[in-house]
Amino acid sequence: MSGFTDGDLAARLADEAGRILLQVRSSGLFSGKSLGKAGDQTANQFLCHALREQRPLDGLLSEEEKDSPARLGKERVWIVDPVDGTREYGEERADWAVHVGLAVEGVPVLGAVALPGLGEVLRSDQPRAIPSAPDILRMVVSRTRPAREATGVAEIIGAQLVPMGSAGAKAMAILRGEADIYLHSGGQYEWDSCAPAAVALGWGLHVSRIDGTPLEYNQADVYMPDLLICRKEHAEMVLREVAALA
């Protein structure tokens, strides 16, 4: 292993990948879907090469890399999403992210989420105080297809809907004090939530499936049906209302 701690490595990788993505976008050489593809592939090459150099004995799962069953035999597996929110990245919005997470025996123990459009990297091992929740709670939902459970629970508890792009941006909005609840039931993959879940856990938030069970990573099937990230004091209420909607 290199001189980097896991936390420093995750943060450095997420930050540098974000810088690369901004350079690709500002080059003026790509537009539309080709910009998203160029950004995804360029950042993925950087992340995967760097992880194999720095942590050669660990497993690796990336959205943009062909999956290998070899990772299933590894205790430590890095799970990365080079561009979480490719659409938002291509539209030059700020609500996209770079995810670098580490799962140990299936548990998201460490991660960093870069928000390059905001010039910020949030890491699981450097938590800060989260602003207090307002009287009217705010629930982040998809810009294009808000989940039925999320809109239903928001209506019941009187929460304000906050449309936002990528999964990482939604999760980090809670840490940044811009939202209070992230309830997703439309299906994701491990790379969509591993790093955000690790950071949220490191900052003391509640993280689970929408039935209250823990999230499990480095599975043979990387599909993850749902996710809840919120302050611990809101978790019981949200889980109860989700169950009532089922």
Rank of each mutant, 00 (worst) to 15 (best):
H49N: 11
A198Y: 01
E241L: 03
D15I: 04
A94Y: 07
G119D: 11
L115C: 07
L239P: 02
A244D: 15
A246E: 14
V141L: 06
G101M: 03
R71Q: 11
A112T: 05
L29W: 14
D226Y: 07
V80E: 05
P82S: 07
L118A: 13
P146C: 02
S31N: 08
A147N: 04
D211E: 10
L47I: 15
R76A: 14
L245P: 10
K66E: 14
T86I: 05
G168K: 03
C230L: 03
W191N: 07
A103C: 08
N218A: 13
L102T: 07
D180P: 02
H99T: 00
A197D: 00
A129D: 14
D180F: 00
T86G: 01
E88Q: 12
E53V: 05
G177N: 12
G177K: 00
V207K: 00
H49S: 15
D84K: 02
R145G: 01
R19G: 13
A171D: 06
P225M: 13
Q23R: 15
A169C: 02
G32Q: 11
D81F: 04
E155Y: 12
G101C: 05
L227V: 12
D40F: 06
H234F: 15
T144K: 03
L183P: 00
S124A: 10
L21W: 02
W78Q: 00
Q219N: 14
G202M: 00
A112K: 03
K33A: 15
V100H: 05
L13P: 03
G152I: 07
S68C: 08
I157L: 08
L61A: 04
H49K: 11
Y182I: 01
L245K: 10
A14L: 06
S132W: 09
A43S: 10
P146F: 11
T86Q: 08
A171E: 01
L161G: 08
V207R: 00
R55N: 04
V162H: 10
A173Y: 04
R128M: 09
V121N: 05
P134E: 12
G73T: 09
R25G: 07
G73P: 09
G117S: 05
K37D: 15
A235T: 09
Y182G: 01
A97I: 01
L205D: 02
A129Y: 00
A114L: 13
E149A: 12
R87D: 13
S31R: 14
A103S: 12
A167E: 09
S34N: 08
W78T: 08
R148V: 08
S132Y: 06
N218D: 10
S62M: 10
S26F: 12
A220E: 15
A220W: 08
A112R: 00
G168Q: 01
G204S: 06
G73M: 03
R176C: 11
D15M: 02
V109M: 05
A38C: 03
A235H: 03
L57V: 07
L51G: 11
R19Q: 15
K74N: 07
V121R: 03
A147T: 13
G101Q: 06
L102D: 09
S193Q: 05
E53W: 10
A197N: 00
M224A: 13
